[in-house]
Design a protein around this nucleic acid. Sequence first.
DNA 1: CAAAGTAGGACTGATTTGATCGTATTTTAT
DNA 2: ATAAAATACGATCAAATCAGTCCTACTTTG
Lengths: 133, 133
Amino acid sequence: MLRLSKRVEYGLMALQYLAKSGNVATAREISDAGHIPYELLAKVMQSLKHEGIIDSYQGVRGGYAMLVAPAQINLARVMKALDEDATVTECISPGSVHEQCTLYANCTIKEPMQKLQTRMEESFGKMTIAELL
Amino acid sequence: MLRLSKRVEYGLMALQYLAKSGNVATAREISDAGHIPYELLAKVMQSLKHEGIIDSYQGVRGGYAMLVAPAQINLARVMKALDEDATVTECISPGSVHEQCTLYANCTIKEPMQKLQTRMEESFGKMTIAELL
DNA sequence: CAAAGTAGGACTGATTTGATCGTATTTTAT
DNA sequence: ATAAAATACGATCAAATCAGTCCTACTTTG
């Protein structure tokens, strides 16, 4: 299917929102503005925080804010934070136990797939949050 | 998840096989050589035929053969044949009824996603079956 | 006319994803 | 102090997707 997950979509919308507003915004505020399910967005924000893209403030008057300049955050990093696995084939997957792919020993397309992976990462590496503004 | 489907993987392996052999091969032969589930491969071959990438011959001594030069077949075309939908977001999907995406009216990332789609299609458009040989 | 193929519909099980719920923790304001 | 507003996060449920399999038909060569 090759589709971005909703987590990534929501994450991009949220980052765009934060980048535009320029200061702290709550998950509820972003959820309302973008018609995004609140509970899911909340998790997305936590993941973005763990990746070090945004910062969080707990308690009343809390919320989230950008921690890195929009132009410095590329899509690859957002996807890494939100979409555990962004590899075109199983055998390329980072912590992949090759034996998991039953075809590995007989696979005839490993090298080209690695090349494809590299090209896609370039595509996702080139686009930044700044391009969403 | 952003992973190529097994259908596409199998299709690429099969096309590579056909391109290398240079003549007619049966689905069973390709399935055995690549340790690919026969039934699934058979469907993949049918899809590739409908797309006009390969030709089929029924009956005894039948099988499949390349119909287009390997260098003329890019990954985008193979994916189109095998992976109904290869769009990064729902709203970009070819026959998409925009109303299907509940966010469409409020979506703030439509244009950038379209740009991303174009870039990815370029990636998939550049790689051909000739690169698998 | 039998065997070896392709053609293709229908079904099942597994995996993944989206969404929701419940509860704990932190912090500000009163 | 304490109530309210917010993040933190684990657990669970439902829906969609996909891989794989089964079954039956049709086609062609020998």
